[in-house]
Write a protein that binds this DNA or RNA. Structure first.
Lengths: 183, 183
DNA sequence: GATGCATACTATCAATTTGATATATAAAAG
DNA sequence: CTTTTATATATCAAATTGATAGTATGCATC
């Protein structure tokens, strides 16, 4: 599963341009599967070359032309192939944790700044998804509901762990094992 | 912060070869900052070219030679620079969530298989870190303790969410908002 | 006694992704 | 009047991924 597969998936909702897809990555997808122009445009070019998508040039007044992509039947088959892996990965790449690992090489002030910044970032994220509420809940596909709930849950969990254990990094406390192990 | 910085950090613990570092990435670091030979060896080559590390060829009997790297003073400074970013990232790239997002395009059996596999993967991870217990807790640096506890906590949280909400994907239930929002 | 696999080391390569930048127009904000 | 934001395309160097290659020893399996 790569960006190509996700683009195909997005196109099952209807035709879209690369720019549209970028916005979709920014708003929802990007939180668990980020992608920028540098991967979206090459992905679309490859998909078009292989007949998985078709595109139409749509001129606009006062705005640049749009290249609007649609999924083909071959594309739908390819998408099924992309979704058929029974062991999809789930990877974290965290400069935050890598930095904190080396806390013993850092000043307490540095550590506190990093932790504070990360906490407010998470709080911002939680606020954002709670302001954008379960509006038209019946229209949203079950998978999207599940994933959105997952994001909310994990962010809250992230916040709780940091708040309970940040003392370990600057004072001399051991980690709160109960919280670490508990559900 | 990239693989180079992490390699420098590892070398503050003492000299090591690329192979040693790969094992370190596999056992602990890789859970939050993965790297393979394809990034480790180029990173070490660049660091050596720039005088951040030195290496010695160590012949061995019955085994291939080792290239043992040590950090230099310039390397220690570079490491401090690498750790000085007050807003380090924390990114998720999840084929799992991307696949689940498209659950409405899939068969229930496919979804169940994916969820079952992911659950047993997490259970294996939790078992692993709990068998490898808080042994020499005073010797382990505070940052490593914090990060290990974080991994345990997030894995448990991941598991709890999936178990409480997997029904959403194959039956017609809404997500359990209380669990999603709660601590 | 051969065949395959695990461990110990090095290293490279094509494909993909990242993060930034280039180009161009128009409206809105300051 | 200048900067920023939005609409849209696209490319590029650098980094990373995941696989593979090469070389040597030991250990088990057939």
């Amino acid at each position: 599963m790569d960006v190509k597969t996700v683009c195909l998936g997005m196109l099952t909702d209807g035709p879209a341009s690369g720019y549209d897809m970028k916005k979709c990555f920014e708003s929802s997808f990007g939180h668990f599967f980020p992608a920028g122009y540098g991967s979206i445009y090459p992905a679309l070019a490859t998909l078009a070359r292989n007949g998985m998508v078709e595109f139409e040039d749509v001129p606009q007044e006062g705005k640049p032309d749009r290249k609007v992509y649609s999924i083909t039947d071959a594309g739908r088959q390819e998408l099924q192939k992309g979704l058929s892996n029974p062991e999809p990965t789930h990877k974290v790449r965290s400069e935050f944790l890598a930095t904190i690992w080396f806390a013993h090489l850092m000043e307490d002030e540095q550590i506190d700044a990093i932790v504070d910044n990360k906490l407010s970032e998470i709080e911002g994220f939680l606020k954002m998804i709670d302001e954008f509420p379960d509006c038209d809940c019946d229209q949203v596909p079950k998978g999207a509901q599940f994933v959105a709930g997952f994001g909310r849950h994990m962010a809250a969990s992230f916040k709780a762990y940091i708040e309970s254990n940040r003392d370990v990094l600057t004072e001399n406390k051991p980690v709160d094992v109960k919280l670490a192990i508990g559900s």
